[in-house]
Design a protein around this nucleic acid. Structure first.
Lengths: 164, 164
DNA sequence: ATTATATACATAGCCAAGCTATATATCTAG
DNA sequence: CTAGATATATAGCTTGGCTATGTATATAAT
């Protein structure tokens, strides 16, 4: 069945691309996925080096430098310098950033809800478990080239609970 | 349980954004998601007007004009004019385009496979059903503001079967 | 017929996100 | 105290996304 799993993964990525676009247009906020991805990572990690943030977000370091600049301009993150190493700058999400993230998720889910409103409970359950599986795997990929600096996992947006 | 579904949808979009990035870096092809999204839509619709293609891909018409231009330059699509209406230009995927799409999906899935290789069969099943559910819903959103021009559905990449 | 309006696509011009290559600053080893 | 490694910043490019607007064709009204 590796052939089958291969197809499922291909389909998964395809449908994800489509769903992402549907979501983007449904909740037509002006902000980009990268912003929310970054904030979401920040929320789950706490203060973190820029390079590690880039790795966890799966973007290059220069890209993350840009993103962090934008986010800082909006007041959604702040940067603090490391007393022990003048090269590093740690990034932290601000309360405003958390609020913006929560607001976006709410708006987004509200926009998508109509399309999923009539889902049978069993399908809802399937989706929930699929999301859990995917989150596990994505987290696993982060462990592979895991940097040593990161602390313990923290909260997730939806639940406020410790992730994993 | 609307609150629960709301959270699931939020989590779903979040994990999708992350997975998309993992996939993008794992299968480090130089092409962008938009290219594959477009080809995938084209494959499933057959010859289609540019405006309808834009709607189905959930991008604006000018964005699609650009994408189609790029794809035509690569020889992955071709455009044909409508004898009945000189304004419209129909877009069709070429054999080269289909081949490129299949190659990408193969490469992508191969790159992701290691992360998912040890999934228990029940999880594989869950993912498969989740993908099916999502594909249904994404298709449903397309019906809402459905244009009248589109013909019957065609093949999907993975299976070569008629999609829904 | 002619003129007006609607439709399909193209163009212009902007900004964000992504990349590689490279520079700068700091730290660590010898 | 210099040599190399490391953390981030800068430069410069491409693509994808948008809105606003232009152009050509088609349809409707007078």
């Amino acid at each position: 069945m590796p052939a089958e799993l291969t197809d499922i993964l291909g389909d998964l990525v395809s449908v994800n691309h489509r769903l992402t676009r549907v979501a983007a247009r449904a909740a037509r906020g002006t902000e980009s996925p990268a912003v929310w991805r970054t904030l979401s990572v920040l929320l789950s990690t706490g203060p973190i080096r820029l390079g590690d943030l880039a790795d966890l977000s799966r973007v290059s370091q220069p890209t993350m430098t840009k993103l962090v600049g934008n986010l800082a301009d909006r007041g959604w993150i702040k940067r603090q310098s490391d007393p022990a190493d003048a090269r590093v700058s740690r990034t932290v999400i601000t309360p405003a950033g958390e609020a913006a993230l929560v607001a976006w998720r709410t708006e987004l889910a509200a926009a998508l809800l109509p399309y999923f409103a009539d889902l049978p409970a069993s399908d809802v359950d399937t989706l929930e478990r699929a999301v859990a599986i995917l989150r596990d795997r994505v987290a696993a990929t982060e462990q592979l080239d895991a940097p040593q600096h990161l602390g313990a996992p923290k909260r997730t947006v939806a639940t406020g609970q410790v992730a994993r």
